[in-house]
Design a protein around this nucleic acid. Structure first.
Length: 585
DNA sequence: GCCGTTTTCGGCCCGACTGTTTTCAGTCG
């Protein structure tokens, strides 16, 4: 039982309660608890064993008891009971954007809708349109949203797939005779969403590995199984393919099953041009003599290439770059010196105080943290006066601290619909670090969104644009705007773009990272931590950056604090080109 | 169901937007 499974059960209880008209505050309690569990970096079962569940924010005595029930029995009676009352297919209907519990409950009770197909049917045949507050425009919007939902389906965010994959790998490594067990496929390439899980094992005898795999608790149903290969559907919904190969083929198989398809075709073509044959079993010459295959390095070497990091293997120029010795020296998590987007409990949606944040950041070896709580238009966010006080408090605290991490006084200020900022420029100028983000009005038309963001970047007080596309993996697509126009302004104004490392955001997307680099815009890889435990999530941002060919020099927070301070002084703070208030959007 | 320098009861964010109405319900962030 993994965090995701527990979180899913709790979230489903919230949905089911909502559909049956339960107490909305109870609904919210379950939802918050689910999110807490989902984003916990360590296993929730460990917190349970140590009796520390109730120490987590949003988890009280009741829900801790429920989690215990789920972990120890695999079931939650309350959940089963609710599932008996509500058609389970309705949960998927709730995931359609713009469709909430009231609409679903109405369609269910009045039209007998039981699942997404049924819901689509009543949208199309006009039955839904007659119901209260449901006119033609909404029905059209809903049908479009159903289509988007269907397009997203079948892929899950990397962090979910990775957790399951790593858990299975750990179990396979314990099987006797296993030399190595690794995750391949799009997970290894660190794509932000994953359609299936590819697992690869090196062993002299395949059968025990396949047998063990079939018995793994994550497996729901085995759909195909042979002596060296097994395909199964997992409880979490994805399909997974296991391949067992002999040690002398492991590198070739890793390369083959890591992909991408486009990358493999390029490398294989190179092999053919040299008179070789490349397959998942190895690389061979014309006479069938094995030239290599135990390691990936042997494969690359045989086709006269240096080893290419998996994140680059998308067939987007990495082979050519490798051939010319121009592969980027990709950024690594260890290059990051600090974290420049962190919420303290002064933000209503965050849970850790300065002390907890500093302790965890110290443990992770961070040299500095920028405390960037929300501005006033967020619920309970900070206004000018409150932020002034907050910043003073942060600086005082920092001056008293003798150890790392150092604290920077910052803010995450909202970019309002007209492109102005949610705090006075005077206040913002005082701060060490300003993240500016869009948090509302996501559906502005692209031209308006572009103008809105550009106006914010021209304010002369913004250091970085936070989670630039607003996407939430598996939930919400990026909002539409002209990235290239924004990049141009960002470069002119010396504003960086954030690579937000929240596992369900990973925003900036990889391709956009690459565009930013080409446009001469610096990046900042930040955790956007809302709890001390989230500070460890930076790797998700690093992965996106690596997929975007990003090197340490492209990333501001690879700078030591003294260098960062120097950079900020000669950067946009020196010359503001724009008077914010007077310009219309 | 959670939470508490407004602490064990009684709050819990709330305004904007949209499509639907003719004053507002539902959804979202």
């Amino acid at each position: 039982m993994e965090n995701t499974d527990v979180a899913q059960i709790l979230a489903e209880v919230a949905d089911l309660l909502e559909l049956t008209g339960g107490n909305p505050f109870k609904v919210r309690a379950y939802r918050q608890a689910a999110q807490m569990v989902e984003l916990l970096p360590g296993p929730v079962s460990e917190a349970w064993r140590k009796g520390k569940l109730t120490e987590l924010p949003s988890i009280g005595e009741h829900i801790a008891g429920h989690i215990e029930e789920i972990l120890s029995t695999g079931h939650f009676r309350e959940h089963d009971k609710l599932m008996g009352k509500v058609p389970p297919g309705l949960l998927e209907v709730l995931m359609v954007e713009g469709v909430g519990p009231r609409t679903v409950a109405t369609a269910w009770k009045q039209l007998g809708v039981k699942d997404l197909d049924g819901f689509e049917r009543v949208c199309r045949d006009g039955a839904l349109e007659g119901l209260p507050r449901l006119g033609p425009k909404r029905v059209v919007a809903i049908l479009e949203a159903i289509e988007r939902h269907r397009a997203r389906k079948g892929r899950v965010p990397l962090f979910r797939a990775l957790r399951t994959a790593e858990s299975i790998i750990k179990q396979l490594r314990r099987v006797q005779g296993v030399r190595a067990a690794e995750v391949a496929g799009s997970i290894r390439r660190r794509r932000e969403t994953v359609g299936d899980i590819d697992l690869l094992v090196s062993a002299t005898h395949a059968e025990p590995v396949v047998r063990a795999f079939r018995r793994v608790s994550e497996v729901l149903e085995v759909t195909a199984s042979g002596p060296t290969k097994c395909t199964a559907r997992l409880r979490m919904g994805l399909q997974t393919d296991l391949r067992v190969v002999p040690p002398e083929s492991f590198g070739a198989a890793m390369h083959y099953f890591t992909g991408s398809k486009a990358h493999n075709i390029e490398v294989r073509t190179r092999a053919v041009h040299r008179g070789f044959k490349l397959s998942e079993y190895g690389i061979f010459d014309r006479k069938g003599k094995r030239l290599g295959g135990a390691t990936e390095e042997e494969i690359f070497k045989a086709v006269a290439l240096p080893w290419i990091p998996p994140e680059l293997r998308e067939g987007t120029g990495e082979v050519e770059a490798a051939e010319k010795g121009r592969l980027p020296h990709l950024v690594e998590e260890g290059d990051l010196k600090g974290d420049l987007h962190v919420h303290s409990d002064a933000s209503s949606d965050a849970h850790s105080d300065f002390e907890e944040l500093c302790a965890e950041a110290a443990r992770l070896g961070r040299e500095y943290l920028a405390i960037t709580d929300h501005s006033q238009s967020r619920p309970l966010g900070l206004g000018d006066a409150a932020l002034h006080k907050h910043a003073a408090h942060i600086r005082l605290l920092d001056s008293r601290r003798r150890t790392r991490p150092h604290l920077l006084a910052g803010v995450e200020v909202d970019i309002l619909p007209d492109g102005t900022l949610d705090l006075s420029l005077e206040t913002l100028r005082e701060l060490d670090w300003v993240v500016a983000s869009v948090h509302a009005h996501f559906s502005d038309p692209p031209e308006k969104m572009t103008r809105r963001i550009i106006r914010a970047l021209r304010s002369g007080v913004v250091d970085v644009l936070g989670h630039p596309t607003g996407r939430q993996l598996g939930v919400r697509d990026a909002y539409a705007f002209d990235l290239e126009a924004v990049l141009e302004v960002a470069r002119e104004e010396g504003v960086a773009l954030e690579v937000n490392a929240m596992p369900d955001r990973m925003d900036l997307p990889d391709k956009s990272c690459r565009l930013a680099k080409e446009a001469g815009v610096r990046l900042v890889i930040s955790s956007d931590a809302h709890h001390a435990s989230h500070l460890g999530n930076l790797r998700y941002g690093v992965w996106m950056a690596r997929r975007g060919w990003i090197e340490p020099g492209d990333v501001l927070n690879t700078l030591a604090l003294s260098e960062l301070r120097r950079y900020l002084q000669r950067g946009r703070r020196a010359a503001s080109t724009y008077e914010h208030e007077g310009i219309s959007p």
